[in-house]
Design a protein around this nucleic acid. Structure first.
Ligand SMILES: [Zn+2]
Length: 568
DNA sequence: GCCGTTTTCGGCCCGACTGTTTTCAGTCG
């Protein structure tokens, strides 16, 4: 039993209790316990050792019993009961922006609505607007949320889709395939996907049937099968002969334009590149992997991240492919949280873990004043934190701790502390955390002001998107990058799997202005500090090289860089 | 549901904003 499952169960109970209208304090107790468990190494082993879970702050007699029951039996009776009482459709409704527990309760009580579909119909029929407390604007906002929910429900986060793709690939290999791998958008490291593609190199296609979950209906497609996966998005599995597997995988991972271009290069060389691989006449050209497939086409290996159909093939032909950033280039991480705001680990724990991960430095940027819900720091607390960091610094040298803050960019574009206080910090991450329904002009002005503030070192998660949940703000990206360039701020590539923000499609526009990127985990836990691999792939999609990224600097260089920025 | 204690209940993280209000409830972050 993994910790994540226990945490997920407690959080699910919290949200179901909230939707049932239970006391907010009870709801918070579940969330607090879940938060506490995140930072415990392994709850299951604590239970096995007979340790008392109530020793953990936030876990009392009741929750300890539930946790033990869950770990030993895999379920919690009360959770099962709550799931029956609160239909999944109601949970979906509460996920719509503009709808919270209060309005969902009213909709259920007054109109008997228990799903987004029913809600959509009621909105259309004008029943919702007739309710007390639901005016024209509220209903319009709900309608908008329903539309974006319908769009998002067909999309999965990269990790979710990749996990299922890799599970399928390994089952194919267990079933006798010579090789199998994830292809498609996930294969070329898109941040989300609406389908999962897997290619297998295998004689015959008998193995395909073995990987379909029981009772699932399967559709036959060219060279393979299509079915609905565990994550409820379509899964396409293609079987190709083992010899040309590398070329088939390459073809399936490339964007249509990249694939087409490769196909015409193959044709020029008297070969044929298609879904099933590379052929000369009827004979497959042996390509063990993608690299050998490229070699047969007279090209160097083009990393999957670049296979978008831009000018990557021209660059490859000219021998001018960029030397892309690698995970090992990153020598430190800025923008992390601690228990001083909403982080789950202390400054010391975070710093020690960063050091253990091989980083030379950590940047601490807890939430600011206005983010009260997230334990945002008052000016006094920020100063007190400064002292604590100072003490830890001498202890941990030569490992470096940089003291910053993640300052909200307020509605008027100003930062959350006075200039004097900000000037005493090593650096500032400036970010927006509340939209206030501002329009393009308003949000652009706000971001521009935040980005160009002389104290801003990094513009945090600039688009505000939450993949599969919230669209980015509509803003004039060019104007914002220009503003950042003026003040010498870097742009963040936030590594949170739902953010991956700035969008990689925007990165060329950022680097073209001479701006740097900071790849930040935005970690709230020790484990989170290391969760930046996907962001590195995303950075590579934006063709970032080590020199474009500030946290490839050594600790010494970073110290000088931040000093220099402050003097500007 | 947890915690602490002034020992068994009462307090527990909040401030800004919006829309529908005519004095405030609900949402957001
Ligand atoms: Zn943030």
């Amino acid at each position: 039993m993994a910790n994540e499952q226990v945490v997920a169960a407690l959080r699910e109970m919290a949200s179901l209790l909230e939707l049932k209208g239970e006391s907010p304090f009870q709801v918070r107790a579940y969330l607090k316990a879940a938060d506490r468990l995140i930072e415990v190494e392994d709850v299951a082993s604590l239970v096995r050792e007979g340790r008392n879970l109530t020793d953990l702050p936030g876990v009392g007699k009741t929750l300890a019993e539930k946790i033990i029951h869950f770990i030993t039996t895999g379920s919690i009776p009360q959770l099962e009961k709550l799931r029956r009482e609160v239909p999944a459709g109601v949970v979906d409704m509460a996920s719509l922006s503009g709808l919270g527990p209060g309005r969902v309760a009213t909709l259920r009580r007054e109109l008997g609505i228990e799903s987004v579909e029913q809600l959509e119909e009621a909105v259309r029929e004008g029943k919702v607007e007739a309710l007390k407390g639901f005016g024209v604007k509220t209903v319009a906002a709900i309608a908008g949320s329903i539309a974006s929910w319908k769009k998002n429900r067909r999309i999965r986060l990269h990790r979710v889709a990749r996990e299922e793709g890799e599970e399928i690939a390994s089952r194919l290999v267990e079933g006798g395939a010579a090789q199998a791998a994830v292809a498609g958008r996930i294969g070329r490291w898109h941040e989300t996907a609406s389908a999962i593609d897997v290619v297998a190199g295998v004689e015959g296609d008998a193995v395909l049937a073995s990987i379909v979950p029981g009772g699932m209906c399967v559709e036959k497609i060219e060279g393979g099968i299509l079915f609905t996966g565990r994550t409820t998005i379509p899964v396409r599995v293609r079987a190709v002969r083992p010899e040309p597997f590398g070329a088939a995988l390459l073809f399936a991972t490339a964007s249509p334009i990249h694939a087409e271009r490769l196909a015409s290069i193959a044709a020029e060389r008297g070969m044929r590149l298609e879904k099933s691989g590379l052929f000369r006449g009827d004979e497959p050209v042996p390509t063990r992997d993608e690299e050998s497939a490229y070699r047969e086409l007279g090209l160097p290996f083009i990393p999957p991240e670049l296979r978008e159909g831009g000018d990557e093939i021209d660059l490859a032909l000219a021998g001018r492919l960029p030397r892309l950033l690698e995970r090992s280039d990153l020598r430190g991480v800025l923008h992390n949280h601690s228990t001083w705001s909403d982080g789950k680990a202390s400054i010391r724990e975070m710093a020690e873990h960063a050091s253990a991960l091989g980083f030379e430095y950590i940047g601490l940027a807890d939430h600011s004043r206005t983010a009260g819900y997230a334990g945002g720091l008052s000016a006094e607390r920020l100063l007190a934190q400064m002292e604590e960091v100072e003490k830890l610094r001498s202890e941990m040298a030569p490992f470096r701790i940089f003291h910053g803050v993640e300052s909200d960019i307020l509605k008027d574009g100003s930062l959350d502390y006075d200039d004097d206080l900000l000037s005493r910090l090593d650096y500032v991450v400036a970010s927006i955390h509340s939209r206030y329904g501002m329009d393009r002009e308003g949000i652009t002005a706000r971001l521009t002001a935040g980005a160009s503030n002389r104290r801003t070192t990094i513009l945090g998660h600039p688009s505000g998107r939450l993949l599969t949940e919230r669209d980015p703000y509509d803003f004039d990206t060019g104007a914002v990058w220009d503003a950042a360039a003026k003040g010498g701020a870097a742009i963040e590539l936030n590594a949170h799997e739902k953010r991956l923000d700035v969008d990689w499609r925007e990165i060329p526009g950022v680097t073209a202005r001479g701006l740097k990127i900071a790849i930040s985990p935005d970690a709230h836990t020790r484990k989170g500090l290391g969760e930046i691999d996907l962001a590195v792939h995303i950075a590579r999609k934006g063709r970032l090289m080590a020199r474009d990224v500030i946290n490839t600097m050594t600790g010494e260089e970073m110290e000088a860089y931040l000093e220099e920025k402050k003097r500007r």
